[in-house]
């Protein structure tokens, strides 16, 4: 009979290590492809190379927030703590990606559109609204108090945010006269083979990073919950011990 292995003192596992190594290798490949293998564009010249970080950030913003919405629905329907934890983890990563989407788009916009930002641009502003909604979602999650009530409030916001996802995505089609943003590069664009290949590599790298982060973030939330429970157990034991002592004294 072998003694059980000591519990690890981190949130890593064999899966996350493999994912992490793949992300590092993928980032190196992406930098080499993005800066040296992919061709420049006639109009934008080398500024087009921003597409290799902007498009993956944008696509995984959608995927992260859709994951949050699915998790939110599962919480509302089944009160599944597992799904609620997934929803919260995906939301935090989605906020990160959404921020990067806006930032890289803005830095790309200066040399190509001749402006960092336009407050009336429907694609830019709806994306910002999405980001703010998800920051609100995370704020509500961190309010504390009754966990079930907090999860329910957050889940409602998570579902509402998903409703504006198609608006953000289709805004460049529906309100052509209200945006500087071009239509979808992946579905409607005309791309060089190597440009397309590099974008796909970027999507794979972002996907691997999303999976790595989701697993770690999920486990952190799980640990936080376990810590609250064990703290509560400890507090109860202490109160009981105090009670016994007082009984003995009296």
């Amino acid at each position: 009979m072998t003694a059980p292995a000591p519990a690890p003192s981190h949130t890593g596992s064999r899966t996350t290590r493999l994912l992490g190594i793949a992300v590092v290798v993928g980032v190196i490949a992406l930098v080499l492809l993005g800066f040296f293998a992919a061709p420049e564009d006639d109009e934008q010249q080398d500024a087009v190379r921003m597409i290799f970080v902007h498009v993956p950030s944008a696509l995984f913003t959608y995927i992260a927030f859709v994951t949050t919405a699915i998790g939110s629905v599962m919480w509302l329907l089944r009160r599944s703590v597992w799904w609620d934890t997934v929803a919260g983890a995906a939301a935090e990563i989605g906020v990160l990606f959404c921020g990067l989407t806006l930032f890289t788009g803005s830095v790309w916009g200066r040399p190509t559109w001749n402006t960092y930002w336009d407050w009336g641009d429907v694609r830019l502003v709806t994306t910002l609204i999405l980001l703010l909604m998800m920051i609100g979602y995370l704020s509500v999650r961190s309010l504390g108090g009754d966990e079930r009530a907090t999860a329910t409030r957050a889940a409602v916001i998570g579902v509402l945010a998903a409703v504006i996802l198609p608006i953000v995505n289709r805004s460049v089609e529906w309100w052509e006269n209200n945006t500087l943003h071009q239509k979808s590069s992946l579905t409607d664009g005309n791309l060089e083979d190597m440009t397309l290949f590099t974008i796909v590599v970027g999507l794979v790298v972002w996907g691997l990073f999303f999976a790595w982060s989701l697993i770690h973030r999920f486990r952190i939330t799980w640990l936080e919950r376990e810590l609250r429970v064990s703290d509560l157990d400890l507090a109860l034991r202490e109160r009981r011990a105090e009670g016994h002592t007082e009984d003995g004294d009296s």
């Binding site: 336009d118 407050w119 009336g120 641009d121 429907v122 502003v125 709806t126 910002l128 609204i129 703010l132 909604m133 920051i135 609100g136 704020s139 509500v140 961190s142 309010l143 006269n177 209200n178 945006t179 500087l180």
Partner: peptide, 27 residues
């Protein structure tokens, strides 16, 4: 976080209003 949620809600209202006034809308 409550203050952040409140400010975020306010900002969203301002941005939606800004969109409907169509400051970029071009002919």
């Amino acid at each position: 976080p409550a203050a952040i949620a409140g400010v975020v809600a306010l900002l969203i209202v301002v941005l939606v209003w800004n969109l409907f006034t169509g400051t970029l809308f071009f002919y």
